[in-house]
């Protein structure tokens, strides 16, 4: 029983990271209808920036906030330079654009910071949380920070004018434009927020998986699985999907013999394929209807 609750708690902790990645993916999907295959690399680059600032002597939280702002700006710049011109291009061209971005960021990070594995500090330490052997303080802090980020995003999207405009632009771009919403600005905003949310995920997972240019590969796949499970058209769904996927990953790894750590990625593959085939709109997503 203790093993079970332990695994579920650990699942919620990693699930929080997947939720962040999934949310970032969904934000871009809502804005431009494409899957950002470079999301993981963007988060990795943000994490390296935070590491560099801490290395130069900045306090953790200052580096954290500064990284979020830089990532936001970076997301907006990428949208303006790269994907705005591709907005009318076929999916295939967009796909190639994302893969190019993936290759460039990965390679540039390696050039600047080297491909060796680096430790990343945690502001919460790694002692047991409240004397419990189940969760470490880092895991608890990770869940706390991410819940805070999610709450802020929720309030922004639900209760502010700009949040409403963003949701309108995602749901009905044409009508939103007609009532005077600058949809292009909303798309850029979506990219910036996605980059910042991804950066949160990167900085919080880095103490666990360590820092190197390829650190986000597995996390990205699980982020995709979470986004698909929750429904690509539903931000709250992505969050729920993230936590579910984290728990599923841990439980399958523990209780299904022969799976363990070495089959973690095939589990994500199986999840993605099963959800897409059985219920392509995910748990909370809208069904897409095409006009003939």
């Amino acid at each position: 029983m203790e093993l079970l609750s332990n695994q579920i708690l650990a699942g919620i902790a990693t699930g929080a990271i997947y939720a962040c990645m999934a949310l970032a993916l969904v934000m871009i999907y809502q804005a431009i209808g494409q899957l950002n295959f470079a999301q993981g690399e963007m988060a990795m680059f943000s994490t390296f920036m935070a590491w560099q600032m801490i290395h130069w002597g900045a306090p953790y939280w200052a580096a954290f906030v500064l990284t979020l702002m830089l990532s936001f700006a970076g997301g907006v710049v990428i949208e303006r330079l790269l994907f705005r011109p591709l907005a009318k291009a076929p999916i295939l061209t967009n796909l190639a654009g994302f893969l190019a971005l993936f290759a460039i960021i990965n390679s540039v990070a390696g050039l600047i910071w080297d491909f060796t594995i680096k430790p990343f500090p945690s502001p919460f330490g790694s002692s047991p949380f409240l004397g419990s052997r189940l969760v470490s303080t880092h895991q608890a802090g990770m869940i706390g920070v991410i819940l805070l980020v999610l709450a802020v995003l929720f309030v922004f999207l639900r209760f502010t004018r700009m949040g409403l405009a963003m949701r309108a632009a995602a749901a009905q771009p044409e009508s939103a434009r007609l009532v005077g919403i600058d949809t292009n600005r909303m798309i850029a905003l979506g990219w910036g927020m996605a980059a910042a949310v991804g950066a949160v995920a990167g900085m919080l997972i880095a103490p666990v998986v360590f820092l190197d240019p390829n650190m986000m590969g597995g996390v990205l796949i699980y982020g995709f699985a979470a986004a698909v499970l929750g429904g690509l058209s539903s931000p709250p769904g992505a969050v729920v999907g993230g936590f579910l996927v984290g728990i599923i990953e841990n439980l399958v790894g523990t209780y299904v013999s022969g799976v363990g750590n070495e089959l973690k990625l095939p589990i994500a593959l199986a999840l993605i394929v099963i959800v897409l085939v059985v219920k392509p709109s995910g748990l909370f997503g809208r069904q897409e209807i095409k006009r003939v």
Binding site: G33, Q34, L35, F37, I91, L95, G217, G218, I221, F224, A225, V228, G258, E262, L263, K264, L265, P266, A268, L269, I272, V273, L276, V277, P280
Partner: peptide
């Protein structure tokens, strides 16, 4: 299964397949 997918969804499923392949090949 890929039949039921198109566009970005198919790209995603096949992307996951490619990521999972090395681990499948390492199976004990």
């Amino acid at each position: 299964p890929a039949l039921r997918l198109s566009g970005v969804y198919l790209a995603l499923a096949t992307f996951a397949l490619a990521v999972a392949t090395p681990q499948l090949l390492k199976l004990g």
